[in-house]
């Protein structure tokens, strides 16, 4: 366990001292306040517009974290052989992956908390400035919704660990990660469209099957239903919330387990 803790600690330090991380911290602090400007321009439904925009920015921040910080951390380890040093210690390959994964997820949490606290403060200011338009702005809903939005990205990270362990280098892993990320965003609206009789009639059945099969492979990053309910000032319903959490955690665990299986058999040249 000593090795795991030491590696978690190193991962945290390694990420936190990168300029890209500091840039994301600055963005997380500034954006909630900047969003008050466009919110003020659309004073029709201040709470909903602000929450929608906050969640959109949160998706951008989380995606940036995955692409520019989390994915290079593991790929660099494999490409530049830092993992060789760790694996010659009393530390198994599985423990190495788990420690890196946990370190990465832990580095994400302060960033997210900072963003949500700033968003909550900006929301309070907006409610104070324009009380008549802030009927649907509920701070607690926004905080919980914002925290739940991180789950799909934890799932994506788990899948990335599998991709990185199976790929031959950083560039290949990044291409597959980008592919997975694009599919995650693209498939839900396509499936929505396929539910319309007119679209379904014009789509070849095997293409529709292929899209449905892909939907099972990649996690739904948009969390659209959850975001919609929170933006309208409602608590997410429990019968939707539980499957949402279980689905994404299952993706993360499955990705990590597959990564362990592949990594255990991989030659580290």
């Amino acid at each position: 366990m000593t090795g795991v803790w030491a590696l978690i600690r190193l991962s945290l330090r390694e990420l936190a001292w990168q300029r890209a991380y500091l840039l994301l911290v600055v963005a997380a602090m500034l954006f909630p306040w900047l969003l008050l400007i466009p919110t003020a321009l659309f004073l029709l439904d201040l709470g909903k517009v602000l929450v929608d925009m906050l969640f959109a920015i949160e998706h951008v921040l989380l995606s940036c974290f995955v692409f520019f910080l989390a994915s290079p951390l593991l790929s660099r380890d494999l490409d530049q052989r830092l993992c060789h040093l760790w694996l010659t210690m009393p530390l198994s390959r599985a423990a190495y992956l788990v420690a890196r994964f946990l370190g990465t997820v832990l580095a994400l949490l302060p960033l997210l908390c900072l963003f949500l606290v700033m968003a909550w403060m900006a929301g309070q200011l907006a409610a104070h400035l324009w009380p008549a338009y802030a009927s649907t702005l509920h701070g607690a809903h926004m905080l919980v919704g914002g925290m739940l939005l991180v789950l799909p990205y934890v799932a994506l990270l788990g899948l990335f660990y599998f991709i990185a362990c199976a790929s031959s280098g950083a560039a290949e892993a990044l291409v597959f990660l980008l592919g997975g990320w694009l599919l995650s965003w693209a498939i839900p609206p396509v499936l929505q469209a396929l539910r319309q009789a007119e679209v379904a009639a014009k789509t070849s059945p095997w293409i529709a099957q292929l899209i449905r099969a892909l939907d099972f492979v990649v996690p739904d990053l948009s969390s659209a239903r959850l975001a919609l309910e929170v933006a309208h000032g409602q608590w997410p319903e429990l019968h939707l919330l539980l499957p949402y959490m279980v689905e994404h955690l299952a993706y993360a665990v499955s990705g990590l387990l597959l990564a362990m299986l592949v990594f255990a058999r991989r030659d580290l040249g």
Binding site: G3, L10, W17, Q80, L82, H84, L85, M89
Partner: peptide, 20 residues
């Protein structure tokens, strides 16, 4: 071997020592 660019020599070695 490429060491992590953002860390210091002392950070890295302390961490490796702790792991052992």
């Amino acid at each position: 071997l490429q060491l992590p660019e953002s860390l210091t020599p002392l950070d890295i070695l302390r961490c490796l020592c702790r792991a052992r």
